[in-house]
Amino acid sequence: MDAQAAGGVDAPDAESFGCIDWAAPWFAPFAERGARWQCSALDGPEPFLATLDADACASTCVTGRGLPLRFVTQTQLPVDTAYEAHIAATGRVPTRHNLHDFFNALVWLAFPRLKAGLNARQAQAIERDGVGAVRGAERDALTLFDENAALFVTTDDALTEALVAFDWRRLFVAGRSSWGTRCEVHIVGHALLEKLISPYKACTAHAWIVGAPQAYFGWPEADRRAWLDETTACALAQAAPTSRAFAPLPVLGIPGWCAANADATFYDDTGVFRPGRRAAA
């Protein structure tokens, strides 16, 4: 998110708010709040920010150092101050009137503990290492998580093995009936959500694997999300992620996420569903 420090000018995609399809499986979990925010965004920057901040005020969400979450204009980010450090120190998230920051705010409200955990780690790394031309391995991995992560939740180790081994046919074809009963995906990377406004076959997430208890898929959706938020936040508190902790996941390969993948030949495209070094080994 370092690019946010560049200034407060709204990106030119503000008019694209009207293009969000809340019926799409990657947006549907955010639809209830997101559709309301979308209406405010279409009314302009001021109603947009007011709606976001009202929801933050009504929540119990906090940022990386326990301060109440608030959304403020990008102009409140001081010059030469790192975006993540500012959030941790003040509780205020500088926000532009664009899709990128729209989805960032949605993820903050949907997975508040996860986002606070990421913010805490990012702020710690900045304090320790400073802000230079190169972020360093830890901040790179945290940025991957923040921008492009999907949580791959499963009760079946064989499905984890298939994902890590790039065994796409075992994961998506032979294991097709397992989706929704033994594994599922939650997208938490806001840049990835932004990309999925116009989905394309090669769109790939950095999948963070979460092993769940056998009872998980019998829980109500709200309980699953709360457990996932807490579990991921606890993992982040124990150790910072590394880039090797993620597995590539072409998101349009997920059963039900693309009509074309009902035909098994969809996965024959090795330009997208690559064998990978791990599978070759």
Score class of each variant (00 low, 15 high):
Val164Met: 11
Tyr83Met: 01
Pro213Gln: 10
Phe266Ile: 10
Gly189Ser: 05
Gly66Arg: 06
Ala245Trp: 11
Leu192Asp: 00
Leu118Arg: 06
Ala207Pro: 02
Leu114Lys: 12
Ala262Thr: 10
Ser198Glu: 15
Glu147Val: 00
Thr231Arg: 14
Gly91Phe: 02
Ala222Gln: 13
Asp157Arg: 12
Arg135Gln: 14
Glu46Gln: 14
Leu196His: 14
Arg224Thr: 01
Ala207Thr: 08
Gln38Ala: 05
Leu99Gln: 10
Phe71Thr: 01
Gly117Trp: 01
Gln124Gly: 11
Gly189Glu: 07
Pro68Asp: 04
Asp2Ile: 03
Cys39His: 14
Asp21Ser: 14
Asp263Val: 02
Cys258Phe: 01
Ala24Ser: 13
Phe102Trp: 06
Ala116Trp: 01
Ser40Thr: 11
Ala237Ile: 12
Asp80Gln: 03
His206Thr: 04
Phe30Ile: 05
Gly253Tyr: 09
Asp268Tyr: 01
Cys39Thr: 15
Ala150Thr: 12
Leu193Arg: 08
Thr60Ile: 11
Val251Asn: 00
Ala149Phe: 05
Arg121Gly: 13
Phe111Lys: 06
Gly7Ser: 13
Arg36Phe: 01
Asp268Pro: 07
Ala141His: 07
Leu49Gln: 06
Tyr267Ser: 04
Cys183Pro: 00
Phe172Trp: 04
Ala110Trp: 08
Gly132Lys: 10
Gly44Arg: 13
Ser16Lys: 15
Ala240Gln: 05
Ala41Pro: 13
Val107Gly: 03
Gly136Asp: 03
Phe266Ala: 03
Ala235Ser: 11
Phe217Ile: 10
Thr204Ile: 09
Leu151Ala: 07
Phe152Ser: 03
Val185Met: 10
Ala237Glu: 13
Phe30Met: 02
Ala262Gln: 08
Gly271Pro: 01
Gly34Met: 09
Ala279Lys: 14
Asp55Val: 00
Ala133Ile: 12
Val153Ala: 13
Arg169Trp: 08
Pro29Gln: 05
Leu236Met: 08
Ala264Cys: 10
Arg139Val: 03
Pro47Glu: 01
Thr160Pro: 01
Ala85Pro: 04
Pro275Thr: 07
Ser177Asp: 09
Phe102Cys: 00
Leu193Asn: 12
Leu114Asn: 00
Leu249Val: 07
Arg277Asp: 10
Ala11Phe: 15
Asp80Glu: 03
Val153Cys: 13
Asn98Ile: 01
Val93Glu: 05
Ile209Cys: 03
Ile254Thr: 04
Pro250Lys: 06
Leu109Asn: 04
Tyr267Phe: 15
Trp108Ala: 00
Trp219Gln: 05
Ala235Leu: 14
Gln124Met: 12
Ala89Phe: 06
Ala149His: 07
Gly117His: 08
Arg139Tyr: 06
Ala162Lys: 04
Phe145Ile: 09
Arg33Lys: 07
Ala3Trp: 15
Pro29Ser: 00
Asp263Glu: 10
Ile20Gln: 11
Ala58Lys: 15
